[in-house]
Design a protein around this nucleic acid. Structure first.
Lengths: 126, 126
DNA sequence: ATTTATGCAAACTATTTGCATTGCC
DNA sequence: GGCAATGCAAATAGTTTGCATAAAT
């Protein structure tokens, strides 16, 4: 199952990297379609999933609302505006040992964690 | 807009309280339908939302997968099995002042946070 | 030549909503 | 009796998938 280098694939990767905010699949699609009107939504979804599977980008599964895609760098947390739904990075150190605070694991094997802050962004607050 | 006391409403509340795990709307519906075959999915959804709006239960919006409903007690964190998708409570103190660790809020008004641990539950690990 | 990837549309999951009807209060 | 709540079905949002065709290797 060798990966091939298609125009669509590289457009998806390039677009996720260019979009500073954490774009949804639809936002990636909308951006690409402006220049390449023949790309399909299905292809965008397939490539976003493939690229996040191989670690080129990261899929951020958000509670309520669409998944968002991020060009990884380091582990970090996010905050979501409860009014507009947009997602932003939070400037806070990653708590690598958070799992050690768990009192009883009940046999559960922990592999990581996400923290999602909730709040109102400056634009929605004005 | 006075709330009325319908059979369906009390069945939904009773069922959420009875189901120990964090049930999805569908699991609540399936449970009720066994005894009351005439209840509709729409009514279950409407009542789950209404009950969580008035604080009788809590809606847990999960990244990927259906929302889950919980009969509140106190603020607490959750963990989700990456294999079966089920959600469990985590025995860990709530970090009330977590927001104070954020270095620069960029004008964002924080109102709370969720922590979702990821891992593999004992059943899926065997 | 092979076989992955694409475009398209249909299917799917989770949830909401419009509307006529039912049934609390 | 009035208005909230229900059942039903259709609509919606986000995403996946089957299939014939196109294109990368």
């Amino acid at each position: 199952m060798n990966k091939r280098n298609t125009i669509q694939r590289s457009l998806v990767l390039k677009t996720v990297k260019e979009l500073q905010f954490h774009a949804t699949a639809d936002e990636v699609y909308d951006t690409i379609v402006k220049k390449h009107s023949d790309i399909s939504r299905g292809t965008v979804y397939r490539n976003l999933n493939l690229l996040s599977d191989i670690g080129e980008i990261r899929k951020l599964e958000m509670p309520s609302g669409a998944d968002r895609f991020d060009h990884i760098c380091h582990e970090h947390y996010h905050t979501r505006c409860i009014k507009c739904g947009r997602v932003f990075d939070v400037e806070m150190d990653f708590i690598a040992d958070l799992e050690t605070n768990i009192k009883d694991t009940h046999g559960f094997k922990f592999t990581g964690h996400d923290i999602i802050f909730k709040g109102i962004c400056p634009e929605c607050n004005s």
